[in-house]
Design a protein around this nucleic acid. Structure first.
Lengths: 248, 248
DNA sequence: CGGTGGATTGAGCACACTCAAGCATTGTGG
DNA sequence: CCACAATGCTTGAGTGTGCTCAATCCACCG
């Protein structure tokens, strides 16, 4: 169904899952080459969203999940009293809206943090396909399970860790994820505002700012606005040493 | 393979999913009667665990999820530095270990808080079955998705809510879940210790204690040890009024 | 009985929040 | 290209919620 939208994420046109540079970290990882064309028939490739544009809105009727192809997405929900809670940041190769599968509406809104390219995955059709391709079903189970686990790590972070520990592990998480994307793990641009980081980590913006400048004075990191250089990764890991759970 | 274990949860022997009083809130909800026998062939019914016994251990090889038939389970993981984090409480009809599907080991330990009866669901065989029974696959997706959503609500609770708000919503959550089980929503026995509650909610035990006695003085609840009576549910809801997300 | 683990209560302190002001960066219109 | 607004970010001062440490109380059980 590749209605040929001008998909110019990262400057290159990506027409199919087959040729997508993310194929090893997105859905197709679990799919044999023979099955890829079936998947491509289901997924709408490379829809473009400008900075600030909403991919979907909390309470919209749920229809599809979205895989990030390029750019970055943040998700957030608004509670009854109007308070906003940022629930996640999604980088290329990651899948948005897994939390909404259980309901018939989106439980959060998704907003492009920069010009982004997304692949739409209609859930109905994916379910059909997953029933026929065992590895795809399994992969989807694993994606969701992994998101549950991250949520638990997040709870740990929010309830037991100091501001420094939260920010250190946040930066290291970004580093890891950029690295998996074959981008530099030590030099990257933060796609989100300090405000979003603060909200996500359960801190005040002021605290985020203070901690990051402290990190800078300790020569752990270097910031120029949103450009971030991790100078002393081990130093950061030292701060978080609690964080990762056991199992070798 | 219903090896006839002496399954005496709540004093009655429950031999099959078919006759299980939880069939409407556990897995079978989504399964037609013709498919039930196939599910029963996969699920091991009513294994008994005594108070304090571990159902599985963090880092054990992952094999199965477990549905609670009777009793109560807590899950927790231990981080590198030996700190414990309680990640959830599971009541009858709820499924444990969905977070471990993505790895080949359990990412947390599960412990019986009282004498409990569990049904073992081997994931391999469930996946096979799910591929053949669309509604089962869908139900499992929904279970996992719902767990992701709860995790997000939990993050909100941990990062933005006061001790009072956390405890009020904790009590209301228990109330709702007991109610779904057809038990009294206003009078129940807490299966877990104050310590577990504190850990789960990211508070110190002392704080939990103080807040609960405050609630008692305000005549919102009544405690005799672990026996809990919710006196003024609306009062409690008033305290949490933030909590639930939008969407009518 | 005394012993043990869980629960409660009190006093003091600290981390991160709030409020407030100032600074930097980006974008827009003249 | 500069002026200005708007927004995002930083820094400072003071406060409060919930933590820590410590003692006491209570229930259950050998």
């Amino acid at each position: 169904m590749g209605e040929p939208i001008l998909a110019r994420a990262q400057g290159t046109y990506i027409p199919s899952c087959n040729q997508c540079s993310l194929s090893n970290i997105c859905l197709p990882i679990a799919v044999s080459h023979e099955d890829l064309y079936r998947l491509e028939a289901v997924v709408s490739q490379g829809k473009i969203f400008d900075r600030g544009e909403l991919v979907f809105r909390q309470c919209d009727r749920f229809k599809s999940c979205f895989a990030v192809q390029g750019g970055a997405i943040k998700t957030y929900f608004v509670s009854e009293d109007g308070e906003k809670q940022v629930t996640g940041f999604y980088l290329p190769g990651e899948v948005v809206a897994l939390d909404s599968v259980s309901t018939n509406h989106y439980s959060c809104s998704a907003e492009a943090l920069e010009r982004s390219s997304l692949c739409e995955i209609p859930l109905n059709r994916l379910e059909e396909l997953a029933a026929r391709i065992p590895s795809l079903q399994q992969h989807f189970f694993q994606l969701m399970s992994h998101e549950i686990q991250s949520g638990q790590q997040m709870s740990m972070l929010l309830s037991r860790r100091t501001a420094e520990e939260r920010l250190a592990s946040f930066l290291l998480s970004l580093s890891t994820r950029f690295n998996r994307r074959r981008l530099s793990p030590t030099h990257f641009r933060l796609p989100m505002a300090r405000n979003d980081i603060a909200n996500y980590l359960g801190l005040a913006v002021e605290t985020v700012s203070r901690v990051l400048t402290r990190f800078q004075k300790q020569e752990l990191v270097l910031f120029h606005g949103r450009n971030c250089t991790l100078v002393d990764i081990d130093g950061l890991k030292n701060i978080v040493h609690h964080y990762n759970s056991l199992c070798e």
